[in-house]
Design a protein around this nucleic acid. Structure first.
Lengths: 217, 217
DNA sequence: ACAAAACTTGAATATTTGGTCAGAATACAC
DNA sequence: GTGTATTCTGACCAAATATTCAAGTTTTGT
């Protein structure tokens, strides 16, 4: 585990180390998303990062270490990037913003989203542990908030678990399965416009199912 | 392409051949789902099928051939197993049944569903070609039917593409990402009851978004 | 300026894995 | 029962790939 050379505790990673690790992680994420987790070779990552292969192994002892580093980065991003619910602003505003942010996140981190999806389907223990540790709590918070709104009569009672399972399914499908989406929409690439429509569509479904009047924006 | 030994044209595959191919395909599907497409080795398949590795290669020239055979099987299943829309029965009945069938299909063919998902994320050309050839037409049919219903005032106008993209996303998420679902629902295994709730939840969302009154069943 | 720590890298090694093959075993048609 | 077609299988091979290493180079602290 101590692949980090020892150094004074208060000192951060060296400039070079931080920079190279960042380069390697970004490159690896991109290639993992393109090629799948197992099909990706360290050589590909090395080539695309412009480093010799041995240098990759200097920073990440093994391919497994590297994959876990990539996954950790992604999971952190997932947890951090979407803002918490704000009870006072009510369900309509919060859900609309949540869906919008989730869709943007998937869109702008499509590689990360795909790697996450593949790891999840493959039931990578690392990812499952992470979900157990952090996401369950996250969902609890949201559950509490939503129950407050229900008690205040701001929305109908719904199964919060199923609500979020489906919000995640819908918001990630446009990134994870973009190949399918492109074929069905008969487009070469997905444009701003397509994501705007998706946003509107998903938001409408969710708000209606919660018995919330749609806000005109 | 002629990995089939020559035989009289009117004769079907030998009993042995059919049986072994079935065994290999089922085993391969299961392992592909568990391990991912690239991480799966022919040795694993051989071991789990109880055959020597060379025997796998007797029936499937290469690993690619085997994967394609597995995928073809899955895609055929996907196309066949869900009944077509019946215009006369109206949107409520049809959509309810469609969602129910899709969810059952994912549930009872979870391995197939996962392999399909992985191939799609990995943008396997074989799968994309198949989608282009058959699914686009499929969607066209459904689009026509739905437009008829809209004209008859039986439902609100919706983007059929986005509607189906999201129905597929929701109905498959319970099979593809069952590990995640289990963690969030805090269950060891997903029961009949969970799928019933999912069915109800998704159906409600879809019907409401189409402006259809929910049928009491 | 010096030494120690950190970094780089070409080459070598060990392992995994898809694929081949030739001959043995079995099923099948007559 | 005999001969042919089919199936089975252990042993082997070649290519791909992760990982190691040791000798260099650069950076950093003092």
């Amino acid at each position: 585990m101590s692949d980090t050379p020892k150094r004074p505790k208060n000192q951060l990673k060296s400039h070079i180390r931080a920079q190279n690790q960042e380069l390697i992680l970004c490159t690896a994420e991109r290639i993992f998303a393109r090629q799948g987790l197992a099909k990706t070779t360290t050589q590909m990552i090395a080539d695309e990062a412009g480093l010799p292969k041995a240098n990759i192994h200097y920073y990440y002892r093994s391919k497994k270490d590297l994959l876990e580093a990539v996954l950790e980065r992604i999971l952190q991003l997932w947890l951090d990037s979407v803002s918490q619910f704000n009870v006072e602003l009510g369900p309509c505003h919060n859900l609309t913003r949540y869906i919008s942010e989730k869709l943007d996140q998937s869109r702008f981190n499509a590689n990360a989203s795909k790697v996450f999806a593949m790891a999840l389907i493959g039931e990578e223990p690392f990812v499952l542990d992470y979900l157990r540790r952090y996401f369950v709590q996250e969902l609890q918070n949201e559950k509490t908030t939503i129950n407050t709104w229900v008690e205040q009569g701001l929305m109908k009672p719904v199964s919060v678990e199923h609500l979020f399972i489906n919000i995640w399914a819908m918001t990630q499908t446009y990134a994870d399965f973009d190949a399918q989406v492109k074929i069905l929409l008969q487009k070469e690439t997905l444009e701003e416009e397509d994501f705007a429509q998706a946003k509107q569509f998903v938001t409408r479904m969710v708000l209606l199912s919660c018995g919330i009047e749609e806000a005109r924006t």
